[in-house]
């Protein structure tokens, strides 16, 4: 995936600066929200891997 920050066309709005609030307690920037989403995904995959390792033959 090409970085949207480096190759934005003219019509692309300015990249987020982190100043924009997310409104989510504990998350000041969207980068933090996205990191949380990826961590949730990783955690869920780890749980599935545990289920597989524990119960699959």
């Amino acid at each position: 995936m090409t970085s949207p920050r480096s190759e934005q066309p003219a019509s692309t709005p300015p990249a987020e600066t982190g100043a924009e609030g997310t409104g989510v307690p504990g998350f000041r920037t969207w980068r933090g929200v996205y990191t949380f989403v990826v961590l949730c995904f990783a955690g869920f995959v780890a749980m599935l891997a545990w289920l597989t390792g524990t119960f699959a033959p």
Binding site: L51, T52, T54, A56, P57
Partner: peptide, 15 residues
């Protein structure tokens, strides 16, 4: 219940 499912091949959630 989960063990029976696993023993019969239904618990391979991630590969």
């Amino acid at each position: 219940t989960l063990a029976v499912a696993g023993g019969l091949g239904k618990m391979e959630a991630v590969s």
